[in-house]
Structure formats: C-alpha cells, structure tokens
Design a protein around this nucleic acid. Sequence first.
DNA 1: CATTATGGTAAGTCATGACTTACCAATTAA
DNA 2: TTAATTGGTAAGTCATGACTTACCATAATG
Lengths: 105, 105
Amino acid sequence: MTYQLIFSALADPSRRHVFEQLRGGSRSVGELAQSLPISRPAVSQHVKVLAQAGLVDVQVRGRRSEVSARPDGLAVLREYVESYWSDVLGAFEAEITRQRDERHD
Amino acid sequence: MTYQLIFSALADPSRRHVFEQLRGGSRSVGELAQSLPISRPAVSQHVKVLAQAGLVDVQVRGRRSEVSARPDGLAVLREYVESYWSDVLGAFEAEITRQRDERHD
DNA sequence: CATTATGGTAAGTCATGACTTACCAATTAA
DNA sequence: TTAATTGGTAAGTCATGACTTACCATAATG
C-alpha cells in the first residue's frame, strides 16, 4: 500500500527529477517547474503525488509553496530495501551451504 | 536510466509480489504464476522486466526457469536511498542551523 | 516417436496516468 | 482597488503498459 505509492511515485522521471532537486533543501513549485521541460500545473500534480506517497512535505508560505524532502517517507523505503537485502543475503548463504552439502555425487 | 528501470519495475504490484516470493530463494516461473491471480505469460513478462532492471536472475535448468533475486541490482537501489538519505539529513541540519542563526529579530 | 510439462512470444484490448490549455483563488505590491 | 505573482484544479488527449488468448519451442517421459 505505502510501498505502492512510494515506488510508483519514484517510477516517473519527472517526479524523480523533482525529488532530486530537494536533496539540498526546499524549493518552490515555480523553481521546480523552471528546472523541467514541462508546465507548472504538471509539476503541481507531481508534487501532489510525491506528497501522497509521504516522500515530500508542502508548506504554504504566503503565495509560495515550499516543497521539501520528508525523511520519514524515505525511511520507509530505506527499511524495505534493508530488510529485503538481508533476506536475500541469507538465502544466498543458505543456497551455497546447500550446494556444498549436496556434493555427494 | 538504471534507476528508471528499477523503480518502474518495482512500481507494479504483481512484480513486487514476484519479487517478494524471491526473498527466501529461487522460484520457477510456474510456481510464481501459481501464487498470483494472473496468467503465466503475464508472469513471464514481469520476470523479463525485473531481469532487465537487474533485480532478478533467470537460470534455465532443463525445461524449468529458475528465477532468483540479484543482490547487485538491489545494491544499486540501496546505494541510491542511502545517498539521498544522507543528503537530506544534511540539508535538514543546515536548515535548523540557519534558522537558529537567523533569530536576530 | 508421441505426449506431457514448462515457458517464451505475438497480437490485441483496455485502463491508467502524464501531459496540455484554460480557468480560478489568494496573496502581495502599485 | 487594481496588477502582478504564484500556484492549484478541471477537462480532455495520447502513449504506455498490464493483461488476455492463441500459438510455438524445447525438454523430459512413455
């Protein structure tokens, strides 16, 4: 459910570009739009999707909307990857052990 | 480019389900298909996408195709997340410092 | 060799979603 | 209050991609 939102949010190149812009801190929607070859409304929609995925926070200040990366959302992805990573390494180790033990031919 | 393939591969629920099945080790295409409410050809196509993303290895043994998770592919995702994570934490710290220093009102 | 098991490929359908332009809302400045 | 700035929403278009069924290929088995 949450993974769904996170992965499909980051699957789009424009949204990943937006996300990348936020590595160093917050940016306004207009600034984000200027860094992309698409319209501002498109960027606005992308930001909405990123926000729903929990990857981004939007803070309205005056007539500007400041968008920033949200550590909590990223943590979900991080933990998924770490968990999968350790499971796979475990499975690999088990497989190698199995192959070694099977050498009775 | 690679991120594109990885994130869009994992954005699909069926493909994530396949990927999940591989946490504990390899599975044949038929076994994967049985665990999903979709046809075997659909699974075959999903496996192809996962393989192109580098997330999965396919090994043909006799008339079976054994699919397994590929640590190298996962590592790419892992490093991306870790790198982004550290950048964002850095930006947050810088922002807090900036706000503290600005308290001259 | 004929049959069964296993799986990849082709072609076509259908839904989703990434855009666009047009419009509206709200905040700041003249 | 009138402009200008900034950005969200609506509606419509178009491409992509996730499925299906039908088919073909190869490997094990009788």
